[in-house]
Computed example of a mutant assay.
Amino acid sequence: MASAFERHGLDHLSASSINLFVAQPAMWAMQKLMGRRSMVGPAAHRGTAIEAGVEMGLFDPAAPVEACQEAAVGRFNQLTAFSADPAVEKERANIAPAVAIALAELRQYGIPEAADGNRQHRIEVQLPGVPVPFIGWLDFWFPEHGIIVDLKTQARLSSKISDPHARQGAIYHAAHGNAEIRFAYVTPQKMGVYRLEDPRTHLDRVVNIAQSIERFLSLSDDGAALTRSLSPDFDSFYWNDPAARAAAEEIWGQSLEAAPQA
Protein backbone atom coordinates (compact mmCIF):
# COMPACT_ATOMS: atom_id res chain seq x y z
CA MET A 1 0.00 0.00 0.00
CA ALA A 2 1.29 3.46 -0.91
CA SER A 3 2.25 5.70 1.99
CA ALA A 4 0.45 8.96 2.66
CA PHE A 5 3.46 10.78 1.23
CA GLU A 6 3.29 8.84 -2.02
CA ARG A 7 -0.45 9.39 -2.36
CA HIS A 8 0.23 13.13 -2.32
CA GLY A 9 3.15 12.89 -4.75
CA LEU A 10 5.84 13.53 -2.13
CA ASP A 11 8.83 11.27 -2.66
CA HIS A 12 11.20 12.85 -0.15
CA LEU A 13 11.53 15.29 2.73
CA SER A 14 14.17 17.87 3.58
CA ALA A 15 15.23 19.96 6.54
CA SER A 16 13.62 23.05 5.04
CA SER A 17 10.39 21.16 4.44
CA ILE A 18 9.94 19.90 8.00
CA ASN A 19 11.01 23.25 9.42
CA LEU A 20 8.40 25.04 7.30
CA PHE A 21 5.75 22.56 8.47
CA VAL A 22 6.59 23.44 12.08
CA ALA A 23 6.72 27.20 11.53
CA GLN A 24 3.91 27.70 8.99
CA PRO A 25 1.91 24.53 8.28
CA ALA A 26 -0.56 26.39 6.07
CA MET A 27 2.23 27.63 3.82
CA TRP A 28 3.77 24.15 3.80
CA ALA A 29 0.47 22.71 2.59
CA MET A 30 -0.02 25.48 0.03
CA GLN A 31 3.42 24.77 -1.44
CA LYS A 32 3.64 21.00 -1.15
CA LEU A 33 0.02 19.97 -1.72
CA MET A 34 -1.17 22.69 -4.08
CA GLY A 35 2.07 23.60 -5.84
CA ARG A 36 1.79 27.30 -5.07
CA ARG A 37 5.24 28.71 -4.55
CA SER A 38 6.27 31.99 -2.95
CA MET A 39 9.27 34.13 -3.75
CA VAL A 40 12.10 34.82 -1.32
CA GLY A 41 13.19 38.34 -0.47
CA PRO A 42 16.50 40.25 -0.58
CA ALA A 43 17.68 38.77 2.75
CA ALA A 44 17.56 35.25 1.31
CA HIS A 45 19.32 36.41 -1.85
CA ARG A 46 21.98 38.03 0.33
CA GLY A 47 22.60 34.64 1.93
CA THR A 48 22.88 32.92 -1.44
CA ALA A 49 25.30 35.59 -2.68
CA ILE A 50 27.54 35.45 0.38
CA GLU A 51 27.71 31.67 0.11
CA ALA A 52 28.75 31.99 -3.55
CA GLY A 53 31.58 34.34 -2.65
CA VAL A 54 32.77 32.20 0.26
CA GLU A 55 32.58 29.05 -1.86
CA MET A 56 34.76 30.68 -4.50
CA GLY A 57 37.35 31.67 -1.90
CA LEU A 58 37.46 28.28 -0.18
CA PHE A 59 37.81 26.17 -3.30
CA ASP A 60 40.39 28.60 -4.71
CA PRO A 61 42.58 29.65 -1.77
CA ALA A 62 44.64 31.86 -4.10
CA ALA A 63 41.62 33.97 -5.07
CA PRO A 64 41.85 37.49 -3.65
CA VAL A 65 39.16 38.31 -1.12
CA GLU A 66 38.19 41.29 -3.26
CA ALA A 67 37.47 39.00 -6.21
CA CYS A 68 35.28 36.79 -4.01
CA GLN A 69 33.41 39.85 -2.78
CA GLU A 70 32.88 41.05 -6.33
CA ALA A 71 31.55 37.65 -7.36
CA ALA A 72 29.17 37.62 -4.40
CA VAL A 73 27.79 41.08 -5.18
CA GLY A 74 27.44 40.09 -8.84
CA ARG A 75 25.41 37.05 -7.84
CA PHE A 76 23.18 39.22 -5.67
CA ASN A 77 22.66 41.67 -8.53
CA GLN A 78 21.55 38.81 -10.78
CA LEU A 79 19.06 37.51 -8.22
CA THR A 80 17.56 40.93 -7.50
CA ALA A 81 17.71 42.42 -11.00
CA PHE A 82 13.94 42.81 -11.25
CA SER A 83 13.19 43.42 -7.59
CA ALA A 84 11.55 46.65 -6.46
CA ASP A 85 12.03 45.79 -2.79
CA PRO A 86 13.53 48.79 -0.95
CA ALA A 87 15.64 46.41 1.17
CA VAL A 88 17.82 45.48 -1.81
CA GLU A 89 20.37 48.27 -1.30
CA LYS A 90 20.68 47.57 2.42
CA GLU A 91 21.28 43.88 1.84
CA ARG A 92 23.77 44.54 -0.95
CA ALA A 93 25.91 46.59 1.45
CA ASN A 94 26.08 43.63 3.86
CA ILE A 95 27.59 41.21 1.38
CA ALA A 96 31.24 42.24 0.96
CA PRO A 97 32.10 42.54 4.67
CA ALA A 98 30.42 39.22 5.46
CA VAL A 99 32.38 37.45 2.71
CA ALA A 100 35.66 38.80 4.08
CA ILE A 101 34.85 37.75 7.65
CA ALA A 102 33.71 34.26 6.64
CA LEU A 103 36.78 33.61 4.50
CA ALA A 104 39.14 34.73 7.26
CA GLU A 105 37.61 32.09 9.53
CA LEU A 106 36.85 29.22 7.16
CA ARG A 107 40.05 29.27 5.13
CA GLN A 108 41.72 27.88 8.24
CA TYR A 109 39.94 24.56 7.54
CA GLY A 110 41.66 24.12 4.20
CA ILE A 111 40.05 23.31 0.86
CA PRO A 112 36.68 21.52 1.03
CA GLU A 113 36.18 18.29 -0.84
CA ALA A 114 34.24 18.71 -4.07
CA ALA A 115 31.60 16.25 -5.22
CA ASP A 116 31.50 14.86 -8.74
CA GLY A 117 30.21 17.62 -10.98
CA ASN A 118 29.24 19.83 -8.05
CA ARG A 119 31.02 21.57 -5.22
CA GLN A 120 28.22 20.70 -2.81
CA HIS A 121 27.63 17.12 -1.68
CA ARG A 122 24.16 15.69 -2.06
CA ILE A 123 23.02 13.57 0.85
CA GLU A 124 20.15 11.13 1.00
CA VAL A 125 19.31 9.24 4.16
CA GLN A 126 16.44 6.98 5.19
CA LEU A 127 15.43 7.44 8.83
CA PRO A 128 13.71 4.65 10.78
CA GLY A 129 9.97 5.23 11.00
CA VAL A 130 9.83 7.59 8.00
CA PRO A 131 8.73 6.03 4.67
CA VAL A 132 10.46 8.56 2.42
CA PRO A 133 14.13 9.62 2.46
CA PHE A 134 15.56 12.97 3.47
CA ILE A 135 17.56 14.77 0.79
CA GLY A 136 19.88 17.73 1.30
CA TRP A 137 23.10 19.43 0.25
CA LEU A 138 26.22 20.00 2.33
CA ASP A 139 27.80 23.44 2.10
CA PHE A 140 31.40 22.52 2.95
CA TRP A 141 32.77 19.04 3.72
CA PHE A 142 36.28 18.75 5.17
CA PRO A 143 36.87 14.97 5.33
CA GLU A 144 40.46 15.30 6.56
CA HIS A 145 39.09 16.96 9.69
CA GLY A 146 35.84 14.98 9.77
CA ILE A 147 33.89 18.26 9.81
CA ILE A 148 30.85 19.46 7.88
CA VAL A 149 30.32 23.24 7.97
CA ASP A 150 27.01 24.86 7.08
CA LEU A 151 27.16 28.60 6.44
CA LYS A 152 24.34 30.82 7.68
CA THR A 153 24.12 34.58 7.17
CA GLN A 154 22.46 36.85 9.70
CA ALA A 155 21.86 40.48 10.49
CA ARG A 156 22.55 39.83 14.19
CA LEU A 157 24.82 37.08 15.40
CA SER A 158 23.22 34.10 17.12
CA SER A 159 24.73 32.90 20.39
CA LYS A 160 23.81 29.28 19.67
CA ILE A 161 22.49 26.95 16.98
CA SER A 162 18.77 27.45 16.42
CA ASP A 163 16.39 24.50 16.70
CA PRO A 164 15.59 24.46 12.95
CA HIS A 165 19.30 24.47 12.13
CA ALA A 166 19.94 21.77 14.71
CA ARG A 167 17.39 19.58 12.95
CA GLN A 168 19.15 20.21 9.66
CA GLY A 169 22.47 19.30 11.25
CA ALA A 170 21.02 16.12 12.73
CA ILE A 171 19.99 14.99 9.25
CA TYR A 172 23.52 15.67 7.97
CA HIS A 173 24.94 13.72 10.90
CA ALA A 174 22.65 10.78 10.13
CA ALA A 175 24.03 10.75 6.58
CA HIS A 176 27.66 11.08 7.76
CA GLY A 177 27.62 9.45 11.18
CA ASN A 178 31.29 10.07 12.00
CA ALA A 179 31.31 13.73 11.01
CA GLU A 180 31.17 16.68 13.35
CA ILE A 181 28.55 19.22 12.32
CA ARG A 182 29.33 22.92 12.71
CA PHE A 183 27.22 25.94 11.88
CA ALA A 184 29.09 29.08 10.87
CA TYR A 185 26.94 32.16 11.45
CA VAL A 186 28.26 35.31 9.79
CA THR A 187 27.14 38.93 9.93
CA PRO A 188 28.74 42.00 8.34
CA GLN A 189 30.52 42.61 11.67
CA LYS A 190 31.48 39.24 13.16
CA MET A 191 31.16 35.48 13.04
CA GLY A 192 30.41 32.59 15.37
CA VAL A 193 31.04 28.89 14.72
CA TYR A 194 29.13 26.42 16.89
CA ARG A 195 29.36 22.64 17.14
CA LEU A 196 26.14 20.66 17.09
CA GLU A 197 25.80 18.81 20.38
CA ASP A 198 23.68 15.69 20.88
CA PRO A 199 22.49 15.23 17.28
CA ARG A 200 20.57 12.11 18.34
CA THR A 201 18.07 14.16 20.33
CA HIS A 202 17.47 16.51 17.41
CA LEU A 203 17.13 13.56 15.04
CA ASP A 204 14.39 12.14 17.24
CA ARG A 205 12.57 15.45 16.78
CA VAL A 206 13.08 15.24 13.00
CA VAL A 207 11.43 11.82 12.95
CA ASN A 208 8.60 13.06 15.17
CA ILE A 209 7.86 15.95 12.80
CA ALA A 210 8.01 13.69 9.74
CA GLN A 211 5.53 11.33 11.37
CA SER A 212 3.26 14.27 12.20
CA ILE A 213 3.30 15.23 8.53
CA GLU A 214 2.45 11.65 7.61
CA ARG A 215 -0.51 11.60 10.04
CA PHE A 216 -1.74 14.91 8.60
CA LEU A 217 -1.49 13.63 5.04
CA SER A 218 -3.30 10.42 5.93
CA LEU A 219 -6.43 12.38 6.87
CA SER A 220 -7.38 12.86 3.22
CA ASP A 221 -6.14 12.25 -0.31
CA ASP A 222 -7.47 15.69 -1.24
CA GLY A 223 -4.55 18.10 -0.93
CA ALA A 224 -6.71 21.18 -1.41
CA ALA A 225 -9.06 20.11 1.37
CA LEU A 226 -6.14 19.48 3.70
CA THR A 227 -4.69 22.89 2.89
CA ARG A 228 -7.96 24.69 3.54
CA SER A 229 -8.31 22.88 6.87
CA LEU A 230 -5.38 24.95 8.15
CA SER A 231 -5.41 28.61 9.14
CA PRO A 232 -2.54 30.83 7.94
CA ASP A 233 -0.78 33.30 10.22
CA PHE A 234 -0.73 36.32 7.93
CA ASP A 235 1.18 38.42 10.48
CA SER A 236 4.23 36.24 9.90
CA PHE A 237 6.99 37.45 7.58
CA TYR A 238 6.56 34.20 5.66
CA TRP A 239 3.50 35.77 4.04
CA ASN A 240 5.06 39.10 3.09
CA ASP A 241 5.60 37.99 -0.50
CA PRO A 242 2.78 39.39 -2.69
CA ALA A 243 2.57 36.16 -4.70
CA ALA A 244 2.07 34.13 -1.53
CA ARG A 245 -0.65 36.46 -0.32
CA ALA A 246 -2.38 36.36 -3.69
CA ALA A 247 -2.33 32.56 -3.60
CA ALA A 248 -3.71 32.65 -0.07
CA GLU A 249 -6.55 34.87 -1.19
CA GLU A 250 -7.48 32.29 -3.82
CA ILE A 251 -7.21 29.35 -1.44
CA TRP A 252 -8.75 30.75 1.72
CA GLY A 253 -11.01 33.35 0.12
CA GLN A 254 -9.70 36.30 2.08
CA SER A 255 -8.85 39.74 0.79
CA LEU A 256 -5.39 40.50 2.08
CA GLU A 257 -3.13 43.52 2.15
CA ALA A 258 0.60 43.26 2.60
CA ALA A 259 1.67 42.99 6.21
CA PRO A 260 3.16 46.23 7.60
CA GLN A 261 6.93 46.16 7.95
CA ALA A 262 8.40 46.51 11.44
Rank of each mutant, 00 (worst) to 15 (best):
M1D: 15
S3R: 09
S3W: 13
S3I: 10
A4D: 11
F5N: 08
R7P: 06
H8I: 09
H8G: 08
G9H: 07
L10Q: 11
H12T: 06
S14A: 07
S17W: 10
L20S: 12
L20T: 15
F21C: 03
F21R: 13
V22S: 07
Q24D: 14
P25Q: 04
M30S: 11
G35D: 05
G35T: 09
R36M: 14
R36L: 15
R37K: 14
M39E: 15
G41K: 08
G41V: 05
A43I: 06
G47N: 07
G47Q: 01
A49M: 02
E51V: 01
A52D: 07
A52G: 10
A52T: 14
V54T: 08
V54Q: 08
M56H: 14
M56Y: 13
M56R: 14
G57S: 10
L58H: 04
F59N: 03
D60R: 12
P61F: 04
P61D: 05
A62S: 13
A63H: 02
E70W: 04
A71V: 05
V73G: 01
G74E: 09
R75N: 10
F82T: 15
F82D: 14
F82K: 14
S83Y: 10
A84N: 12
A84T: 14
A84Q: 13
P86M: 07
K90L: 11
K90S: 13
A93Q: 11
A96H: 05
A96W: 01
A98L: 00
V99H: 06
A100P: 05
A102V: 01
L103Q: 03
E105H: 07
E105P: 00
L106C: 01
R107G: 08
A114P: 10
A115Y: 05
D116S: 13
G117N: 07
R122A: 10
Q126C: 06
L127E: 04
P131K: 06
P131I: 11
I135H: 14
D139N: 05
W141T: 06
G146T: 01
I148V: 13
D150M: 00
K152L: 04
T153G: 03
Q154G: 00
I161Y: 03
S162M: 03
S162R: 08
D163W: 11
A166Q: 11
R167D: 00
A170R: 05
Y172N: 06
A175R: 09
G177L: 04
G177S: 09
E180R: 01
E180A: 06
A184R: 00
A184T: 02
K190L: 06
V193F: 00
Y194S: 01
R195C: 04
R195F: 01
E197R: 04
E197W: 00
D198E: 11
H202C: 02
D204C: 02
R205A: 14
V207H: 10
V207R: 13
Q211C: 07
Q211K: 12
S212C: 10
S212E: 13
I213Y: 03
I213V: 15
R215E: 07
L217W: 02
L219H: 07
L219W: 03
A224C: 06
A225L: 13
A225D: 13
A225M: 12
L230E: 08
S231N: 10
S236H: 15
F237S: 15
W239G: 11
P242T: 08
P242L: 12
A243W: 12
A246G: 12
A248H: 09
E250P: 04
W252R: 11
G253H: 03
L256I: 14
A259N: 15
P260G: 10
P260C: 10
Q261C: 12
